[in-house]
Measured scan of single mutants.
Amino acid sequence: DKHFVVALYDYTAMNDRDLQMLKGEKLQVLKGTGDWWLARSLVTGREGYVPSNFVARVE
């Protein structure tokens, strides 16, 4: 069951495990537990961690 989110804010990666994203960017959540979610950008195809409070679910 795939679940998708949209970035509510720009996020600048703090290290090489984070995923940089721009407000409005759509992401697929690969692992969504805790404060940091592993996601893949549908724009760039890159994977990394994003802060869960920076994204909102897309139905």
Rank of each mutant, 00 (worst) to 15 (best):
D1R: 11
D1Y: 10
D1L: 08
D1H: 08
D1F: 08
K2A: 07
K2C: 08
K2P: 10
K2M: 11
K2W: 08
H3A: 09
H3Y: 12
H3W: 10
H3T: 14
H3P: 09
H3R: 08
H3G: 11
H3D: 14
H3N: 14
F4Y: 10
F4W: 08
F4K: 04
F4Q: 10
F4M: 12
V5Y: 09
V5W: 05
V5F: 10
V6A: 06
V6P: 02
V6K: 12
V6Y: 12
V6M: 10
V6T: 13
V6W: 07
V6G: 04
A7M: 01
A7Y: 01
A7V: 01
A7C: 05
A7P: 01
A7N: 02
A7Q: 03
A7H: 04
A7D: 03
L8A: 07
L8H: 03
L8G: 02
L8C: 02
L8E: 06
L8F: 03
L8R: 11
L8D: 06
L8Y: 02
Y9L: 09
Y9K: 15
Y9P: 01
Y9N: 15
Y9M: 11
D10I: 01
D10M: 00
D10Y: 03
Y11T: 06
Y11L: 05
Y11Q: 08
Y11I: 02
Y11R: 14
Y11V: 05
Y11K: 09
Y11E: 03
T12D: 13
T12P: 12
T12F: 12
T12E: 15
T12G: 09
T12V: 12
T12M: 12
A13I: 05
A13Q: 08
A13F: 04
A13M: 06
A13V: 06
A13N: 01
A13G: 12
A13P: 15
A13Y: 04
A13E: 07
A13L: 01
A13T: 15
M14I: 14
M14D: 12
M14C: 13
M14S: 15
M14Y: 15
M14K: 15
N15I: 05
N15V: 06
N15S: 13
N15A: 11
D16C: 10
D16H: 12
D16Q: 10
D16I: 08
D16P: 14
R17V: 07
R17H: 11
R17K: 14
R17C: 10
R17W: 14
R17E: 11
D18W: 02
D18R: 10
D18E: 15
D18G: 13
L19N: 00
L19S: 01
L19R: 01
L19T: 01
L19D: 03
Q20V: 08
Q20P: 14
Q20D: 10
Q20E: 13
M21N: 00
M21L: 12
M21R: 01
M21G: 00
L22Q: 10
L22K: 13
L22V: 14
L22M: 15
L22P: 00
L22R: 15
L22T: 12
K23R: 10
K23E: 07
K23V: 02
G24E: 02
G24M: 01
G24S: 02
G24T: 07
G24L: 00
G24P: 00
G24F: 00
E25R: 00
E25D: 11
E25S: 02
E25Q: 05
E25A: 01
E25V: 04
E25L: 03
E25G: 03
K26P: 08
K26S: 11
K26Q: 12
K26L: 08
K26Y: 11
K26D: 06
K26T: 11
K26A: 07
L27V: 04
L27F: 14
L27Q: 03
Q28N: 01
Q28D: 05
Q28P: 00
Q28E: 14
Q28K: 10
Q28F: 07
Q28R: 08
V29R: 04
V29T: 02
V29N: 03
V29A: 03
L30E: 05
L30T: 03
L30F: 00
L30C: 04
L30W: 04
L30G: 01
L30P: 00
L30N: 02
K31A: 10
K31Q: 14
K31Y: 05
K31H: 12
K31V: 11
K31N: 12
K31T: 12
K31P: 00
K31S: 14
K31R: 12
G32N: 12
G32F: 09
G32P: 11
G32S: 15
G32I: 08
G32Q: 15
G32D: 13
G32Y: 10
G32R: 14
G32H: 11
G32W: 08
G32A: 14
T33E: 15
T33V: 13
T33I: 10
T33Y: 10
T33H: 13
G34F: 00
G34S: 07
G34N: 06
G34H: 05
G34L: 01
G34D: 07
G34P: 04
G34Q: 06
D35H: 09
D35L: 07
D35W: 07
D35E: 12
D35Q: 13
D35A: 09
D35I: 04
D35F: 15
W36V: 10
W36A: 09
W36P: 05
W36Q: 13
W36H: 10
W36R: 15
W37F: 14
W37K: 09
W37M: 12
L38C: 05
L38W: 13
L38V: 06
L38Y: 14
L38Q: 07
L38K: 12
A39P: 00
A39S: 04
A39W: 02
A39T: 08
A39K: 03
R40Y: 01
R40I: 04
R40Q: 05
R40C: 01
R40W: 01
R40T: 00
R40M: 03
S41L: 02
S41Y: 01
S41D: 03
S41A: 00
L42S: 06
L42Y: 04
L42G: 04
L42I: 07
L42E: 09
L42K: 03
V43Q: 13
V43F: 07
V43P: 03
V43W: 11
T44S: 11
T44L: 02
T44E: 03
T44V: 00
T44P: 02
T44M: 01
T44I: 04
G45N: 08
G45T: 02
G45S: 07
G45L: 07
G45A: 04
G45F: 05
G45I: 03
G45Y: 07
G45C: 05
R46F: 07
R46M: 13
R46P: 00
R46N: 08
R46C: 11
R46W: 03
R46Q: 14
R46V: 06
R46T: 06
R46D: 09
E47P: 01
E47W: 02
E47G: 01
G48T: 02
G48M: 04
G48H: 09
G48A: 02
G48R: 02
G48D: 03
G48I: 04
G48E: 01
Y49T: 05
Y49D: 01
Y49A: 00
Y49P: 03
Y49R: 09
Y49K: 04
Y49E: 01
Y49C: 05
V50I: 12
P51M: 03
P51F: 02
P51K: 08
P51E: 01
P51V: 04
S52R: 15
S52F: 05
S52H: 11
S52Q: 12
S52D: 04
S52E: 07
N53R: 13
N53G: 10
N53F: 03
N53T: 13
F54M: 14
F54W: 10
F54I: 11
F54D: 00
F54K: 12
F54P: 05
F54C: 10
F54N: 06
F54G: 12
V55G: 03
V55E: 02
V55F: 04
V55A: 01
V55N: 00
A56S: 15
A56I: 08
A56W: 06
A56T: 14
A56V: 08
A56H: 10
R57M: 07
R57S: 14
R57W: 07
R57F: 07
V58R: 08
V58M: 11
V58W: 12
V58Y: 10
V58L: 12
V58E: 10
E59T: 12
E59M: 06
E59R: 13
E59L: 04
E59Y: 06
E59P: 12
E59N: 13
